[in-house]
């Protein structure tokens, strides 16, 4: 049995309210917040980046399970906000957790789904007995251009999963991917902020791929959506996952445990990993979890997990809800300093 052996999440302490961002740009904060179904977003501190977030998640994951870091044979860090264009975060994580030198790894980029792409990669490596354990991390300090729609949701956070074939807490029953060349969101080389196709990001992009991947996995495995106790869809905002669930006739109750974007925002590559961590925090043995990520460009990875009794052994704080509740509000000026939106710093 191959699956998740341990997991760790991290959300920075700082929050900015959507209404505060809207006020700066002369917009109706309540209207924007209700439209996106996002109240506030997590903001990394001035001394944090996607690499420090990745390290924190990796340490949380190792701390939950009794795993010698020297047995981790691969580390993949999915992010679209790498602190270096060249120089991997994966090796910094490996050094920080003591997994060096017998370890491979790389930084992955596929917009918001690079974290789940890493999960598929290490799943394959573990299943083929190439490595004993592999670590897949999704971490971002997502950037939204000032006065752009993305600025209301682009947030910071991430989660790490250790995949292995011993003491599995959630069996990875099957996975598949639905990918096409659909350029709905991009950031050109040397550009600071991403661009996007506005409404084009919805029907031909998010919905087509998320629903396409879910249906592809359903046909492959022959399940019914009622078979799942929890469902996690990528949450670029609070609205899209609800509509995707409605299209597939999945009730909100199945989304609720991992529905975090209204109070965290979209942590990009860390979004689905964080939401899955929130589900694992409360999932019971025997429960099934359907996970579908989405990355612009575009693709979705779908997974079916079955929780095992081992989940109880790794149920140790801090939980995702602890990070959500441990918050300090900042105003737009401090946010602009922390995220270096002030050009002189």
């Amino acid at each position: 049995m191959v699956g998740i052996v341990s997991y760790g999440a991290y959300i920075p302490r700082y929050r900015i309210k959507v209404s505060d961002i809207a006020r700066v740009w002369g917009k109706d904060g309540e209207h924007v917040s209700q439209g996106l179904r996002v109240k506030e977003k997590a903001v990394a501190a001035i001394d944090e980046d996607s690499c420090t977030i990745a390290v924190e998640t990796a340490k949380q994951a190792l701390g939950r399970a009794d795993i010698d870091p020297r047995n981790i044979g691969a580390i993949f860090v999915g992010s679209e906000s790498k602190p270096f264009a060249v120089n991997p975060s994966a090796s910094t994580v490996a050094e920080a957790i003591g997994a060096v030198p017998n370890v491979t790894g790389a930084d992955l980029e596929f917009a918001c789904k690079a974290g789940t792409a890493g999960m598929q990669a290490v799943y394959g490596m573990v299943k083929s007995k190439m490595i004993k354990y592999g670590m897949a991390i999704g971490a971002d300090t997502a950037q939204g251009k000032p006065n752009d729609a993305l600025e209301f949701t682009a947030a910071s956070g991430g989660a790490a999963f250790i995949i292995g074939d011993q003491n599995v807490i959630a069996e990875l029953e099957d996975t598949c991917s639905f990918s096409t060349d659909t350029p709905d969101f991009w950031r050109r080389a040397h550009q600071e902020f991403p661009e996007h196709g506005g409404r084009f990001t919805a029907e031909p992009a998010y919905y087509k791929h998320v629903i396409g991947a879910a249906e592809m996995l359903r046909e492959k495995m022959g399940f019914d959506y009622d078979d799942f106790d929890h469902v996690v869809f990528h949450q670029p905002n609070g609205k899209f996952p609800l509509r995707a669930a409605k299209k597939l006739k999945i009730p909100f109750e199945k989304l609720s445990a991992g529905y975090i974007s209204p109070v965290v925002g979209n942590t990009y590559s860390g979004n689905v990993p964080l939401a899955l961590s929130a589900v694992l925090d409360i999932a019971k043995p025997g429960e099934k979890i359907l996970v579908v990520s989405y990355g612009s460009g575009a693709g979705s990875d779908a997974f079916s997990f079955k929780v095992t009794p081992n989940i109880k052994k790794v149920r140790k704080a801090p939980f995702v809800k602890d990070f959500i509740e441990d918050k300090v509000y900042i105003d737009y000026a401090i946010y602009a300093k922390f995220r270096k939106k002030i050009k002189s710093i």
């Binding site: 001394d47 980046d49 690499c51 420090t52 390290v55 924190e56 602190p83 270096f84 920080a96």
Partner: peptide
Amino acid sequence: MVFRKITENDGKGIIAY
């Protein structure tokens, strides 16, 4: 302990974590 950036070395150099 937390893992953080200590200095960015002028934005061009190696980041000291």
